[in-house]
Design a protein around this nucleic acid. Sequence first.
DNA 1: TAAAATTCTTTACATAAGTTAATAAATCAG
DNA 2: CTGATTTATTAACTTATGTAAAGAATTTTA
Lengths: 194, 194
Amino acid sequence: MESKTDQFRKYLKRFVELTDLEWQSLEKDFRTVPKKQYLVKQGQTAKELYFLLEGSARLYYEKDGDEKTTYFFFENNLVGDYLGCLAGQPSTMSIQALEDCKLIAFKYETLTTLYEQFPVYQIFGRKLAEYLFMGLDMRLAELLTLTPEERYLKFISTSIKRKILERIPQQYIASYLGITPVSLSRIRRRIADS
Amino acid sequence: MESKTDQFRKYLKRFVELTDLEWQSLEKDFRTVPKKQYLVKQGQTAKELYFLLEGSARLYYEKDGDEKTTYFFFENNLVGDYLGCLAGQPSTMSIQALEDCKLIAFKYETLTTLYEQFPVYQIFGRKLAEYLFMGLDMRLAELLTLTPEERYLKFISTSIKRKILERIPQQYIASYLGITPVSLSRIRRRIADS
DNA sequence: TAAAATTCTTTACATAAGTTAATAAATCAG
DNA sequence: CTGATTTATTAACTTATGTAAAGAATTTTA
């Protein structure tokens, strides 16, 4: 039977192969965060990162009273304010559970300590940053080169994202695409009519 | 007197401290690229990265016949298709010299070899990726949370960026901000009138 | 310096998006 | 199951942006 931590260890294999000692050196802490509660709060300095075992979350910025959702997180992925951890600055955004979440927490500081202790973690740190960079780079290119309608079509064109559609309120998807919920509703109608 | 390579070495000190051996192990190649020529061409697989000694460049995507500029590069910074190097895929964008450029080229493969040879390069690789990630993350947040006018005001509010304004055609700044040159012109007028 | 090329601004018009508010639909909680 | 809450759609209106084209200003270069 696969334990919870195995899920996380398996995820790390995308990046590096860890020995048992290396794997155990990363102190892990189980958490549950109920729907609508926060993993990261704006203004507070994030000290830990999470591996999402179950559930989903959204990252949003607050602006003029309303919220701009810019990212989603799903099971079997890392969650957290990576930028905040890197910069050591208070978070400029919040991360809220969209569904009940089960997660594994680990201190960012523990990770940086492991960078020095084990070369393989240094490699992990690099590959993780590279992986996150790639994601953002492609996202940015899409935002700057595609129209809102094109972005929506691209968004729903992957089967993974279709699952997202069923689990996530459309208002959040709208701001992920850089538009208002009303506008997304119109785009959907426009597409349905054609 | 400071030599050309010293400029590059100094830049690297942001990330790591290199011994002479480590520094010399990175094979460097001087290049000049005249204005309007290309450092990276869409469709070709980028194999090297550059350190810009003098001049400036823009990164752009081609879409429906016209160009979307999404990034600028200036002296004393790295240039190149980092994503393309990471992914080993053909570039989806081009990088064009906006002014005559003097640069130091180094093979991405050499860098990855050095990751294995010298731990300090592994650290450099991590910190570089983290640094680039941070830049993209902040940029993305700005694009998704600010209006075009707010983005322009933010853009010109930093003294560094004001220099950019004087060296870079506004049409490119427009698409950097995610709008058309016409729209930028109107925003500028709106601000001037108020 | 003058002609050519490029860049910027402006105008007019069409289109899409934002805003507000009302209604419909779906989801949640007691 | 039903009332309450949240979410999605629609409508009406305003505003900003895109597009195309013309003219002005600037820069390039021969």
